[in-house]
Design a protein around this nucleic acid. Sequence first.
DNA 1: TCTGGGGTCCTAGGACCC
DNA 2: TCTGGGGTCCTAGGACCC
Length: 426
Amino acid sequence: MIALVDCNSFYATCEQVFRPDLWGKPVVVLSNNDGCVIAANTEAKALSEISMFEPVFKIKKQLIENKVTFFSSNYTLYGEMSQRVMNILSSFSPEVEIYSIDEAFVDLSGMKHFSMNCFGHQIKNTIFQHTGLPVGVGIAPTKVLAKLANKISKKRVSENKGVFVIDSEEKRIEALQWADISMVWGIGSKHSKRLKGIGILTAYEFTQLPRKWVRKNMTVVGLRIWNELQGKSSIEFKTMPAPKKGIGTAKSFGKKIEDLGMIQEACSSYISEVSEVLRSQKSCATYLQVFLHTNYFSDRDKQYSNSVTVTLSIPTSDTFVLISEAKKALNIIYRPGYRFKKVGVCLSGIIPNNYVQGNLFTPTPRWEKNELMHVFDKINRKYGKSTLFSGLVGTRVKEWELVKESRSPRYTTQWKELLKLKTTKH
DNA sequence: TCTGGGGTCCTAGGACCC
DNA sequence: TCTGGGGTCCTAGGACCC
């Protein structure tokens, strides 16, 4: 059996944990640049005016009218709360697959002698007790069924109290018949539209389709889902996170920017970020992509977008080499006279450090001997992000960086931002 | 005025090899 | 009339996830 443990409205509840005054009240968390709603707690979801990914400026009035508290996203806080949850999960089973920031699969195959339902509640209660975060637990023989069980645990809360187990054929059929096809993990908007078009409305009806039809129309990906829904495990359980195949970052500017110099600084800063991630997984990149575009949503601005991919003569993870390559690339695609909204970089062709090959004119580099980058990372880890940075990143960060007007304190990672308790006099 | 960001996997087709 | 067979690598595009 496999459990899928998923935190309820994770970002929003992380904020509530440190703000007990907000319990029972609507809370939403906004995307980077405070652009869209990306998380909403139960109380906020109940307000019909608020839907996910709605641009904030369109619903700001309703947010205020309904006394919804909104936060800019605070990834430092969410990341650290996530780690706490994952640590607790690994005390329940040696095999945990961290699937995303707020959910994980837990292998329960060694727990044959326990009641799955009790075990589920134990996981749920422990996480709540230790972190203050509510979770839903779905337990089933395959990943896709566990995902479905998790949905059921949350949808029918009063009945299931946050835990649902699929441990019999009757329960499996019941779950499949209950689930709309679009609720199945791996069936997205395109496939559900298509399936509904031919009269397949529930997960159960999907499992009744001929295997051949599924393979032909939905590739092996669809077939795996089909198998898993029948109770036949077809999606691997990955305990070790696979090394990244691409590392990229692209963020909207706080305001629109025409100036090449400023764009270069933002670009260099993104390169610093991604190359640090690259080094942390002890790898080098072969390709570097840089792209640039104006605001798609604007009817009034002239539109332009372009990208260029550079093949590095020798794969590298050196921030300074990558910044200088990115700068050249940016010069190729930049056009004056446009108001740019976003610049992005992406590293790919990622290989382990010890696979890097030199060429005829350059001996094979040994990246583990790259003392400068090593010291760089060590200092930034110890004294905080951007203690040391390349001069090409510049010091005008405030002029291009995204806006985070209502970020909560980083309660768990900064001494200065610790939660303060007040004593009240009686 | 203001519309997120970071990923994975699969397939088809082109270009190439012997 | 008849024109092989077995591969690899790369890219773009689509679909999906959180």
